[in-house]
Amino acid sequence: MSRYVVRRLLQAVVVMLGVSIVVFALVHLVPGDPIRTAMGTRFDQQTYELLRARHGFDEPLYVQYFTWLASAVTGDLGVSFRSGRPVTTVLLGRLPATLSLAFAAIVVALLIALPLGIVSAVRQGRASDYIATALSQVGISIPDFWMAIMFILLFSLTLGWLPATGYAPLSEDPLTWLRHVTMPAVTLGVVSGSVITRFVRSSMLEAMSQDYTQTARAKGLAERVVVRRHVIKNALIPVVTVTGLQLAFLLGGVIVVEFIFAWPGLGQLLLIAVQSRDYTVLQGAVLLFALIFLIINLVVDLLYAWLDPRIKYG
């Protein structure tokens, strides 16, 4: 186990190094010169030279990379092309909004997936199974940004129940946060919940056909007790990891959903950076997203190995 942990950690470090190269290269893929492009029509030679020197663009590329990497490791991602503020400060200011949204979304996903998946498996082949399966199929195919707009149309503009935009930090005003987070979290949760539902169902069905379940039935336990004590417990192990992975994948959806609901998180920041050609912020936001994604994946892998010692550490 410890050998697996060490190997998996090393692997994550190698991937993160690769990610850092990609993220660094991004800015240098800008057609022409990123600083000239960022300056647009307000170009003047003196400021240009100054900015080039300040961002280290006059050094050879590999020197720039190692300088950037060395600073990045210590948490220094340079300063914003636009505001001049340290990128790390900007990113950390946005992080709580994104994390609290992702967390709320995964809670919604589980509230959908567990009952739906369990009912679907226990009543396999009956009407409720078909309905649950159909619902999850719809959830998987529905574009989240369209669902978000339809929610706004229905719950904000027509019924006036929930605010379409706005935010309050969870730590300061939980009730306002809850009112604002509901629609974005449900939007993201429906998609992830639909994916998890399918896993819960298939995982339950597999556990229900195992020998230990047959034994439990054979010794005369009521079906309800068999399901609760023997099936669900075993079936939920893979579900834990799928939920973790969905949390990581949620990060992609977060970007679009934050844009729609004007949720002041990392996704919105990323899009603003793209629009204003603020390449250092873009670079930092992409790096932070990838880092969170990688950490969640790593934790999920380690958790899986810990929960289910039968897996082969391949």
């Binding site: 692997q11 190698v14 991937v15 993160m16 690769g18 990610v19 190269i21 990609v22 993220v23 991004l26 800015v27 893929l29 800008v30 057609p31 990581a248 994948f249 990060l251 992609g252 959806g253 970007i255 679009v256 990323l270 899009l271 950076a273 793209v274 390449y279 873009l282 992409v286 997203f289 990838a290 994604f293 990688l294 994946n297």
Partner: peptide
């Protein structure tokens, strides 16, 4: 495959947005 792992380390839409952000 390590190169592929690196590309896999980004949420899909994030990578697409980042690429479009720089390419236009």
């Amino acid at each position: 495959m390590r190169l592929m792992d690196v590309l896999f380390a980004f949420p899909a839409i994030l990578l697409a947005i980042a690429i479009l952000g720089v390419l236009g």
